[in-house]
């Protein structure tokens, strides 16, 4: 009696190692995925410094200002110039005051592009100082070299 050869079975390779690798890759990317991207802005490339270390505790009441290369300021998704920034800062301060805290407890985090004119950053600081904010954090990238 003639038996047909099992050609169909030969065509099926062993998928186990591939699935193992695919799952390992998924696990790797899942662990490293960063959901906290709210603090970054595509138009800001931070300068770097060897002295800074990532903070151990998050800052209290951070007001994050992104300063793009052309001096445009981003605060909470809205775009301002140094002149109009006061409006945005006032609404942030209203939130802080509503929580029963003083303006002086707030921390202004300045994330400025490395090629921004220093004067633009100074203008931003000046506007913040005029609404009585006094704690500033100049954010930079950690340079480990």
């Amino acid at each position: 009696m003639r038996v047909k050869s099992k050609k169909v079975d030969l065509a099926e390779g062993d998928l186990t190692p591939m699935i193992d690798m695919a799952f390992q890759l998924i696990a790797f990317f899942m662990v490293l995925i960063n959901f906290a991207q709210t603090e970054s802005n595509d138009r800001v490339k931070l300068p770097s410094s060897q002295l800074v270390k990532p903070p151990e505790a998050p800052l209290e009441f951070p007001i994050i200002l992104h300063v793009a290369q052309d001096g445009e300021v981003f605060l909470g998704g809205d775009s301002y110039t140094a002149e109009t920034l006061r409006v945005g800062l006032n609404s942030e301060i209203a939130v802080i005051k509503a929580e029963g805290k003083s303006v002086k407890d707030a921390n202004v985090v300045i994330r400025a592009h490395k090629d921004t004119a220093a004067g633009d950053v100074q203008e931003v600081i000046r506007v913040a100082q005029e609404v009585n904010l006094e704690n500033f954090a100049l954010r930079v990238k950690e340079d480990r070299s």
């Binding site: 990532p54 985090v109 100049l138 480990r144």
Partner: peptide, 8 residues
């Protein structure tokens, strides 16, 4: 990227 602050 790890970031840090100069607090002033």
């Amino acid at each position: 990227e790890l970031e840090g602050d100069f607090s002033v």
